[in-house]
Write a protein that binds this DNA or RNA. Structure first.
Length: 425
DNA sequence: TCTGGGGTCCTGGTACTG
DNA sequence: TCTGCAGTACCAGGACCC
């Protein structure tokens, strides 16, 4: 809980919007990573700034001045630099973002304990328990905006409504630096005027399907038979969109969301066809994944690998183990077996990933020592590595093959062979 | 133009079991 | 013993979100 008590601002005489029953707030930081990066670089305010790395990375965030040139999040950096060559490029500082996010979440906690973070820069709040203590939801929303601006030096936008879906739409329309209330009686009209792509769950593919059906607005979806939507999009997605098109969204704010999987992907700076390089990368990713799983106090049962080829086709392979594990060696061995089973012969690979799914708390995992386990086995070794990493920094202790890699590894020359199709299964 | 990294959820196919 | 069926678990991939 927050150590700071809520301090209500002076009330104004402006007529408040009708926010009766609108107890769901969606708070979304404006261009969060860019705004956070400019706290220490105030001279760059009002100028185009792009947050992103080099090589094959994409744009993490951009100031509104850069967005005016067509730069958007997730756009390849090479393209962003072309669109806005005079922009200042800043390398992301994730530790800084996490610290600011934690401070913002603490501000939320001074209002309500019903907080559902969606990411570092946005969250749903259910303020129904705070209305009597603090004031109407829109008043709470404005106080949050003022407080975050004062204390963190960044702006945010707030959507206020009676459901998560509409609150999120409202915050998006309020951007930047605004607050929008959608009263209960206006939800259907508000939603149905929007284009189909505004709906949560409609991405490029689904939008294309809907447009092919002649559906351009949410109102069009609302007046389409449910069976037609389900035939085109599947039972779940069809029903979901039909509900949203009438403003129906019964999902409640869920304060605690348990992780269901943990994993890491890595895109190589160049396409790789050397099996040894890929095996080392799998080892590194398995190590990293296992450390995160142990740090979260979890254990998982299904190991999934992902392989993306040079032509961007992507395959996944998974295997469910007999027992849950948090041991680096088990995860690597399974990932390696899955990769070997692909039977790839010098295919050009762009990315590999390792993920552990089916997570449960480690104390519920009932991990059984095997008869051939030594007294102090791989789990104890992992915990020793974790302790060393905590004391001396990540990577203080690594598998020997990774140490050799950092000492002398050189990337292989680029090749021109096309990717080989993976074997069936 | 050329596409990151970390996730969740859903769907359809297949294998297994009673 | 064989076959068909239903339920379940697993697997692979697609789509989506931030």
């Amino acid at each position: 809980m927050s150590r700071r008590q809520f301090q209500p601002p002076p009330r104004t005489d402006a007529a408040p919007p009708d926010d009766t029953g609108c107890t769901i707030l969606h708070v979304d930081m404006d261009a969060f990573y860019a705004s956070a990066s400019l706290i220490d670089r105030p001279e760059l305010r009002g100028t185009p700034v792009i947050i992103g790395g080099g090589g094959r990375s994409v744009v993490l965030s951009a100031t509104y001045e850069a967005r005016a040139f067509g730069v958007t999040s997730a756009m390849p950096m090479t393209r962003a630099r072309r669109l806005c060559p005079h922009a200042t490029v800043i390398t992301p500082d994730h530790d800084r973002y996490a610290a600011i996010s934690a401070a913002v979440m603490a501000t939320f906690e001074s209002v309500t304990d019903q907080i559902e973070p969606l990411s570092l820069d946005e969250a749903f709040l259910d303020v129904s328990g705070a209305v009597r203590r603090i004031g109407p939801p829109s008043f709470v929303g404005q106080w949050l905006r003022d407080t975050i601006a004062d204390e963190q030096g960044i702006t945010c936008s707030v959507g206020v409504s009676s459901s998560k879906f509409v609150a999120k739409l409202a915050s998006g329309l309020a951007k930047p630096d605004g607050l929008l209330v959608v009263p209960d009686g206006e939800v259907v009209g508000f939603v149905q005027q929007l284009p189909v792509a505004a709906l949560w769950g409609v991405g490029d593919r689904t939008e294309e399907v809907l447009l092919q059906l002649g559906l351009r607005t949410v109102g069009d979806i609302a007046h389409t038979p449910l069976e037609t939507l389900q035939r085109a999009l599947g039972d779940a997605a069809g029903a979901h969109l039909h509900d949203l098109s009438w403003g129906r969204d019964p999902r409640r704010v869920q304060p605690s969301q348990v992780e269901k999987s943990i994993g890491s992907d890595e895109t190589f700076p160049y396409d790789v066809d050397d099996p040894a390089v890929i095996q080392r990368e799998l080892l590194r990713l398995a190590d990293r994944t296992a450390a995160r799983v142990r740090s979260a106090g979890m254990a998982g049962r299904t190991v999934t690998i992902r392989v993306r080829f040079a032509d961007f086709t992507t395959i996944t392979r998974s295997r469910t183990l007999r027992e849950h594990t948090d041991v680096s060696r088990d995860i690597y061995a399974t990932a390696r077996a899955l990769y070997d089973a692909l039977g790839l012969q010098r295919a050009r690979i762009r990315l590999v990933g390792v993920r552990l799914e089916g997570l449960i708390p480690v104390e519920r995992a009932a991990i059984q020592p095997r008869l051939d386990d030594p007294d102090y086995g791989w789990r104890e070794a992992d915990h020793a590595v974790d302790r060393a990493s905590a004391r001396f920094g990540p990577g203080a202790v690594r598998p020997a093959s990774l140490v050799a890699e950092s000492a002398g590894f050189r990337p292989p020359p680029r090749t021109r062979q096309p990717p080989r199709a993976p074997s069936a299964g």
